[in-house]
Nucleic acid binder design. Structure first.
Lengths: 346, 346
DNA sequence: TTGTAGGCGTTATCAG
DNA sequence: CTGATAACGCCTACAA
């Protein structure tokens, strides 16, 4: 392989044509409509391409085609395995459609998110999937106004102005707390925040609803707010919880996601609380690390990969189907009971 | 904002020029050398760009420039938070250089890796960072032959034919096992595989070396092979370990990475082994979940973000500095002792 | 079946 | 500051 034909420049179709002794159009045909070229010429051209180490220039193709052959996913928190699993689901769908997937991570920062979106628009990606920091931010609305197909992931659209996929978070909150009531718990903590995150609000809302329906006193569902949905915030919530006087201390905690639950679990063990006997714990998302915790974590399962696949399907439909109508795909969460909420009390 | 000027086509510099009543060259100047344009005209042009919702077309820029303004990282296992942290380090460096970062995930599959590389070459990225499935694969060597700057991450170059960054894995194995010997363990398991993974081989090699230096009998360092470096493989190694007769069972395990260690920890707890009293555990990488485990995990720390930042620095040097010489950046791993190896025996 | 011409959007250059 | 023009590499007509 001679890989640097014209002093440093990558070989172009022209170079291939020259090397193969055919015209430029023939090379293009070999690439795009191999059927119309005679076998002999085709092989000669392919040989020349291999010899030169020819690689199509994607920017030129793109410029010509007017659009790139890529999708993008902007995720909220790359440190949370949940989003990685969603991305995997998107990627399988993108692969099936022979599209690349650009994965970006806003790390919960709106400025970074806006910057990523800017770049993606410049790249003319075919569609944007996003789990937004703030679904009402101006730079989110602009995506749709630009006519770029886009789908909100893990967050339902309020106004139906675009597609979205998510589980029913209110229901998720309900089944988590109902499970704890079932297990005999009469004093439960909800661990989660900040309330600016919609998922947190809805999971809490579901928890409160079912708590009231069972006729439990409102003050016995205790909200332990956190600054973020992270392991270390879970740990600090654990400190506050362990610090409560025994008769005020909840016997169970429902955490707004698994990272919080893992942090809480860790602090509880450190503080000498037995899980689930002294403190039962339920998380949300059912990331792989939940099942892998030293006390396997009961969690509300989201169909992570399927969320991603569905989101990709919707964005592709919007990109290709002129009859497309926006769709809010809602999935039903399911409780996965493990040891951390294991025993029935009394 | 009128966002669709010419029936569906995104507005171009030409449209902006027309709208602002200036020439195309002036628009280009506003974009690329704002200093040479008078304030009044510049503002008029900027106004027109905003009105039209003009966004530079990156493919056209790229075609013109001959290279994209992006770096890429192909990681080995997106499900392992270690690689996410490395990617974060790369991204900060890329941001400083005003470059985009494309993050790809081979999921340990060589075919997926090759496909990603193909795409990246077509995109004419400025450089490729990669933690390869197999450093000797043909598609890896081709990257260098193509003249694309590239750096191997978490794996040292054997022949110096390219840059690489990694910790000293042999040393990592040494300090892990020395720590266990220190703690009084005389029968230790090494959990890890497959041996096709260089990191596994070297960590084992270090473990064996220090074991011999302390005069311990070879057969008391027991290799429990695994198929992969995952939580579930760790769990299954745990089953094998717990199944051993008590007098043959190691009192400690050194795992080739933290995912294995977390899986092993989980099974140990389930099987009724106390950690660290019945079984001490040491992992490798020191991912955040290691500290967050219910029994916080002792681990050999890699400077994850710094590996990424350094790799990015090297690839940028290769891309821009004609005097560039390949460099093997080696970092020193450090033991982080936590509860999972906590007590001194006897 | 092959060759040729034009254009995608951007940037750079050069003469006014 | 304008206006015109060429070039990047590819693709698709259309003509031979």
């Amino acid at each position: 392989m001679r890989l640097q034909p014209r002093n440093g420049r990558a070989p172009s179709v022209k170079d291939v044509a020259a090397a193969a002794g055919v015209s430029l159009g023939t090379v293009s045909n070999v690439l795009n409509r191999p059927a119309v070229v005679s076998t002999a010429t085709r092989e000669r051209v392919e040989r020349a391409m291999a010899d030169l180490g020819f690689v199509r220039n994607e920017s030129a193709r793109q410029l010509r085609a007017g659009t790139s052959r890529a999708l993008a996913y902007v995720m909220l928190d790359g440190g949370n395995p949940f989003f990685h699993d969603v991305a995997e689901g998107i990627e399988t769908a993108a692969e099936d459609a022979d599209l690349s997937l650009f994965v970006c991570n806003s790390s919960g920062r709106s400025d970074r998110e806006a910057k990523h979106i800017d770049r993606l628009v410049q790249q003319r990606v075919q569609g944007i999937l996003i789990t937004p920091v703030d679904p009402d931010a101006a730079h989110i609305a602009e995506i749709g106004q630009r006519g770029i197909p886009f789908v909100m992931v893990d967050r339902l659209s309020q106004d139906g102005g675009h597609c979205s996929v998510a589980v029913d978070d209110v229901l998720g909150g309900r089944i988590a707390v109902e499970h704890l009531i079932d297990r005999g718990h009469r004093r439960v903590a909800f661990v989660g925040g900040p309330p600016s995150i919609g998922q947190v609000r809805e999971r809490l809302q579901g928890a409160r609803a079912v708590w009231a329906e069972f006729g439990m006193p409102e003050e016995d569902l205790i909200h332990l707010p956190t600054e973020a949905l992270t392991v270390s915030e879970g740990r600090s919530a654990g400190e506050r919880l362990a610090g409560l006087p025994t008769r005020r201390r909840p016997t169970a905690a429902f955490c707004a996601n698994d990272l919080l639950a893992l942090g809480l679990l860790q602090h509880a063990v450190t503080a000498g609380l037995r899980v689930p006997d002294d403190l039962a714990i339920v998380g949300f998302d059912d990331i792989d690390f939940a099942a892998a915790a030293a006390v396997p974590l009961t969690s509300v399962r989201q169909p992570r990969q399927e969320l991603g696949r569905t989101a990709a399907r919707l964005v592709l439909d919007e990109a290709t189907n002129p009859e497309h109508v926006h769709e809010q795909a809602t999935f039903v969460p399911a409780l996965v009971a493990r040891a951390s909420s294991g025993t029935v009390r009394r």
